[in-house]
Design a binder for these strands. Structure first.
Lengths: 222, 222, 222, 222
DNA sequence: AATGAATGAGCGTTCATTCAT
DNA sequence: AATGAATGAACGCTCATTCAT
């Protein structure tokens, strides 16, 4: 009797499901494997939890939406917490990838713009992920999983790296702490994403990136 | 025949307790009354919920911390939800007041700085409030109380007003949507506050205001 | 400090309130006394309990409807149980009086008809009482108060007496047990009353008395 | 994906348990299945509730008596109300069946007697059911479930049908409303049953049927 | 690999009752 | 005589988790 309960291999396969499948590396993928049930559960969990919040979402709801039984959730993830963690981990990796990918530009300013835009677009497409993450983060440090801390670090770091590149071509405001700016940018991005989804403000990613660029422009002109 | 449970008069008195007493209007206040129990509960709730989050905090914990019985919570607030709502409402009013008060300056730019600083300082002093609010907000629109929507409106509006004043003295970047900027600033402020508390980054309010001012400076130079 | 809490004198006064004031003996009545508050509570309790049942009715509801505070109920009755008991006792006395009064006829058959009619009319006018009584009775012997047993005895006895008079003028079916017939009649009366109120069947007391008279007619013709 | 909590299939099997098993149709029944837990709960609930009344009976008591946990009650019935409803529905069906079965006689008068006797005997054997039903009914129309209304209809209807057959062989008293008579008979039966159990009057069903037959005899001789 | 059934700790809420004023 | 405030025991219900099959 095989009991996975602590799976770590949760890459997507080429099935059709709402959470994005990782790009490329098709060559190395095993054809029909990589647990279909877990993906069904991921997507069901994401859909429901991003609406009701993870703590108000019951395991049964998720199981029902995924078309499996409650026991199956435990067979696959071992606990609710584990499921949420893995969901977060998966989504964050994807987001970080997007940012790095969007920031590929020779001009550092354009790179920042590209990275921020990529983040905004990702969050636009997967609003549930942002919601889920914030919900978990705001529970406070006591209840954070290692996963959560790691994720946040990745993202802030991705922003910091983009900012650091700026000084290679522009004269920057040395009085500004890069970490502080990263956090401010991070906050702007998230709040704009939330505002869009939660208050149904029809703001495009292009519009949302503008305030961030204002900040950048002051930074590099100083 | 007095039936609390739906109290609306929750003004503070000049006692010593951790949640700030509303400024001024001391003249009209009744001396020794104005529900002491509700304040004890407010403070206990704020202290605990800002650490564990409202949904993971039990009514009994709050009652215990306030030194009253569980029943007393229900006698005074009628439900857990009501208690949280009133807590939020109370704190938000105070925050909005602080922002308006901090923004009193003839120079619109200095006014923005003052307002943002005031907000940052308030959140620095009452980190629980910010945490609590975000936790509630991020539950998603379905579960929002009228209170929540109202609060958010007040705050965003306070920022918008400060931005609008800028165009009276400076030439501003007309391509920027004021609402979008407000949301971005709002996000920066909150994330900086959270970062400070949650990751114990020893950033002062003066440091935190800088990224926001960068944004403003680009805006008015455009 | 006077604490009545176990009052027994709960006769009505000449105020206007929905529970019927005892007829006659006006001469002996004390003018303005006999606790007005208790009457307000009686009527409020009867009104609410006959709709929701006594166990689902809270002391607070009754107090509210009577326009007094919860504490006042306890000051006046000592406990919820006592209040219900006294309510029952009061109503039952009135009903028994009505039956006896309605049965005043030289012809025993007409007397039965008169008694039954009187009961039906009383229950028609005070449906809450019947409901309340049954609710209490059906809780089972364990939870009966002495009051309840006494009341039932009075009523069944009143019916039995009427049946006994029949043999003085008619030849009766000696194979019938009078007690059994009384209970049967009692059941008919109650169920007809309940049916009328509870299913809003627009049956008059005159119609309802007919089945009972059929029973009587067989009894005296045998 | 099986979600009980709203079960409709609560037929009994041929096990030995205090609530009567439905007659016949043994052919179609699954051998060892047909939820044993629900039957244990039915019987425990009936036993306790008929003594203390449903509202004074706690779910925990029932669970304990049935030898399962509280959670199991909710797994099986979803709510206390549902459990009571299904209990009632089940018992009522059985009673109605008994009446119909007891009323099988070519002579309509004998059929009535048979039907009434069957009802009396059923209630004699299952006094808890009658008590439970009355307790629910007397809560008043506001709190009735559809179940309750349906049940009452079935039973009254069963009586009405027997009365209607009388006119096929006898000349009947056309001035009598059949509905009114049914209700009266219904009341007699119930009160006699209650009297027997609740006041431990050692009256046999044969004795109890007599008053009802008196009524019938007047009816058909008119 | 999956699941139906069961569990039990815990939570929000209710409400009869007490008591100082 | 009356009441506002507080209490605490108890209740209905939820839900993450376990486990035999």
């Amino acid at each position: 009797m095989h009991t996975p309960a602590k799976m770590t291999d949760n890459r997507a396969e080429q099935g059709s499901y709402s959470f994005p499948a990782p790009a490329a590396d098709a060559a190395t993928r095993r054809p029909g494997r990589t647990n279909r049930t877990q993906h069904k559960l991921f997507n069901a969990a994401l859909a429901i939890m991003s609406v009701k919040g993870p703590s108000s979402t019951t395991v049964e709801e998720v199981a029902l939406a995924a078309g499996v039984s409650k026991g199956t959730v435990y067979y696959n993830f071992g606990s609710k917490k584990t499921m949420v963690d893995q969901l977060l981990q998966y989504g964050a990796q994807l987001l970080a990838d997007q940012v790095v990918h969007g920031a590929q530009d020779d001009d550092p300013r354009a790179a920042v713009r590209g990275g921020v835009l990529a983040a905004l677009r990702y969050l636009e497409e997967h609003p549930g992920f942002a919601r889920l993450w914030i919900a978990e983060t705001w529970k406070g440090p006591e209840s954070w999983s290692a996963t959560l801390i790691e994720i946040r670090g990745q993202l802030i770091e991705a922003i910091e790296k983009m900012l650091q590149r700026l000084s290679s071509r522009y004269s920057v405001d040395s009085s500004q702490d890069i970490r502080t700016m990263s956090v401010a940018i991070f906050g702007s991005i998230f709040m704009l994403s939330m505002d869009r989804e939660v208050h149904s403000s029809p703001r495009s990613a292009e519009e949302s990136v503008l305030p961030v660029m204002l900040m950048i422009d002051s930074y590099i002109k100083a």
